[in-house]
């Protein structure tokens, strides 16, 4: 465990906390894409199939449980909570997740390290995670005024990805740890998707104005 990996996990955790904070204290999920949240729940459900079979560390198991529990509870809140669900921008959140899930599934069946159920599901989760933010970015672009918590949520998610890339470089240099090219490319694609958002986020922060993305 190096500082980049730990910071990456912590920013990831913080992004979830920011989102839960919005849901629990403001009782609002305005500006949050349910499609993206459902994709994340799918990512964790398919990636952590090994949670009870392959033990890595207590830290690892606890984090997996946290990501599983929080992603499913966020989806539940947005879909079923009496008050929270009313703030969901259903008309704006029109991205079809099947258009993302199906190509990822086909790609995972064709491009994988080992053709076993667990391995294909794991690869599938990497591909889905790479594009899971897209519905959220589309929704952000349609939202006139992006509130601070939503902006911070997406920023933290992007920071988590950027830190993971630094972590891979660091691990390669120090441990000669080899990151498989599937992980590397899907991680890189995922991080690049945030580049545009980062540009506008940092600008709005520097100029102290409300975050707004160009249409």
């Amino acid at each position: 465990m190096n500082i980049f990996r730990l910071s990456g996990d912590m920013t990831h955790l913080m992004s979830v906390i920011v989102l839960l904070l919005k849901i629990h204290t403001i009782k609002s999920c305005a500006g949050i894409s349910l499609k993206t949240q459902e994709l994340y729940a799918l990512v964790f459900a398919t990636r952590y199939l090994d949670i009870f079979t392959d033990f890595v560390s207590v830290y690892n198991t606890i984090m997996k449980l946290i990501f599983l529990a929080t992603s499913f509870s966020i989806v539940w809140y947005m879909r079923h909570h009496k008050i929270v669900r009313r703030s969901y921008d259903k008309e704006q959140d029109t991205f079809r997740h099947l258009f993302l899930i199906l190509p990822c599934l086909i790609l995972a069946l064709v491009v994988n390290e080992k053709f076993t159920f667990k391995e294909v599901m794991w690869t599938f989760s990497l591909y889905v995670e790479a594009v899971a933010i897209l519905p959220q970015l589309v929704l952000l672009q349609r939202t006139k005024n992006i509130d601070n918590l939503t902006g911070q949520y997406v920023f933290l998610l992007g920071a988590y990805r950027a830190l993971y890339i630094l972590n891979w470089i660091y691990r390669y240099l120090t441990e000669k740890h080899f990151v498989h090219w599937i992980t590397w490319i899907s991680g890189l694609v995922q991080t690049l998707l945030y580049a545009d958002f980062f540009y506008y986020y940092i600008n709005s922060w520097k100029n102290n104005v409300r975050l707004q993305l160009p249409a």
């Binding site: 996990d9 090994d50 890595v56």
Partner: peptide
């Protein structure tokens, strides 16, 4: 290395 197959990241 042998570590290649250990999925120790989240």
């Amino acid at each position: 290395s042998k570590e290649e197959d250990v999925k120790d990241e989240l």
